[in-house]
Amino acid sequence: MINKVGMSKQLIIALSIVNFSVTAGSVFFGYFIYTYAIETGWISLKTLNEDWSVFHSVDWVWLFFVLLFGSVLSIILGVKLANRFIIPINFLADAAKKISQGDLSARVEDAEGHSAEILELMHNFNSMAQQLETSVKNAQVWNAAIAHELRTPITILQGRLQGILDGVFQPDPVLFKSLLNQAEGLSHLVEDLRTLSLIENQQLRLNFEWIDLEYHVERVLLIFKERLHQTGFNIQVELSVTQVYCDSRRIEQVLIALIDNAIRYVNAGVLKISSNMIEQSWVLQVEDEGPGIPIEYQRDLFNPFFRLEQSRNKELGGTGLGLAVVHAIVVAHKGLIKYSNFQNNSVFVIILPLKVN
């Protein structure tokens, strides 16, 4: 059974055991030795009564056995306590050394009973090691994903610019627009990565204020006016709640990501943006006409760099960071974002508190 007694209590108990044992041992050895000495004639009661102020040889024998017993008992308990405290510390030191040498899977695994403080220390160490291992693995995945996302636009830019220098491509407006699109894609990727990094490190500063949601929705729709017209989308806006307490710039960023996502992957048709109030929260909904996201992909929908397999080769495919940024911004607002696929109509529901404390 795991010992959950605190270290200080264990020391108090150990010292109390030593004190009680030495006291009891003194009485036992005194009774045994003096009884033996009187029975054998080594000393008499008269001598003890007359010479009580002077140490007799029997007294020295008694004192020797008491000291020997106390020393042996103290050493035994001391070694036991030392092992209980030092062994897990050695395990911690070994695990820390392995981690410093690159073995991030090292953990402190010891089933023996320890004090509550040491058990908590071991648990916290293992938790820290697990978070470190997860963080490093995530960093490796992110580095690979970022390198993959950067490779294509950089290769296109480099190839086209080299082609212009070599005279292979004519520097016309169409080519420059293509190059500009690649540069804008890189800029969006960097901004998305920056936003995610700020939120992950709890460095994102939100400027909360009361805003007119209708005004900001119109601003975002104006940005997409030409693309929405070209792709055949019909925008339907129904805002029952227009005064919202939030960061206007970040809410616009959320709308831009959701509308951009719809233009890239959704069937042309009605794109509905609505808002309403539920108790002490306001709800923003963005609904399209499908085809929706299969249920097996919905769990990973808001993970960075996640994209549906069938959309990866689309000409307008994104980086897979848009919805991750949306999720992170909503969480930073202390809100919640949900996705549903009712009758193949994708519905993104954002729920934010009426006012953040």
Rank of each mutant, 00 (worst) to 15 (best):
I164G: 06
S311C: 10
V190K: 09
S135C: 07
D247M: 01
V244K: 09
G322P: 03
H229I: 09
V254K: 01
E200T: 11
H216S: 09
I199M: 04
Y297E: 15
F305G: 08
A116K: 13
E120Y: 09
E112K: 15
S346N: 11
G78H: 02
E218S: 12
S135T: 14
A183D: 04
F28A: 14
S178H: 10
L180G: 05
A328E: 06
A37D: 10
Q253S: 14
I235C: 01
G70R: 02
F224I: 01
A145N: 14
I329F: 08
F32A: 13
L308I: 11
K338T: 12
F208K: 12
T23V: 12
A328T: 03
G322R: 09
L81E: 09
K272F: 08
V266Q: 13
I211H: 07
L150V: 02
Q101W: 04
K98P: 00
L73F: 07
D103G: 08
A24V: 14
N3Y: 05
I211G: 01
G30F: 09
T47E: 15
K80D: 14
N313Q: 14
G102S: 04
L213E: 02
L189D: 01
L81C: 03
E191I: 06
Y265D: 07
S248D: 13
T152N: 13
V349C: 09
I118P: 02
N345Q: 13
Y34C: 05
S74Q: 10
L73Y: 07
E226Q: 13
S105D: 13
I99F: 02
G269P: 06
K355W: 01
H148Y: 06
N344E: 15
E287M: 14
R299E: 12
G159W: 02
N303I: 00
V79L: 12
R107M: 05
S8F: 11
G163M: 05
Y34M: 11
D103S: 08
V283E: 08
D59T: 05
G322H: 08
L15P: 00
I146P: 02
G320N: 07
V330R: 12
W60M: 14
Q243V: 10
V58Y: 04
Y31L: 12
G41I: 00
L180Y: 11
V66D: 00
F64D: 06
G167Q: 03
I256Q: 13
Y245Q: 03
L221F: 03
T47S: 07
V237H: 00
L180Q: 12
V326L: 13
K314L: 13
T23Q: 11
L336C: 06
L157V: 15
T242A: 02
T23M: 14
S21W: 07
I235P: 01
E184I: 10
L119K: 14
L354G: 13
N261T: 10
L221M: 07
L45K: 09
F342W: 06
I87V: 12
I251L: 14
E279P: 03
M277A: 09
I33E: 04
S105W: 05
H188D: 15
D94P: 00
V356C: 00
F32E: 06
R312A: 07
D288N: 15
V283K: 07
S274L: 05
Y297S: 13
R249E: 11
A14K: 10
Q230H: 09
K46G: 08
E109Q: 13
N234H: 15
R151T: 04
S74P: 00
G320T: 11
W282I: 10
L204A: 12
R307W: 00
I76M: 01
E287K: 15
V168A: 06
V217G: 02
L321G: 04
S187G: 06
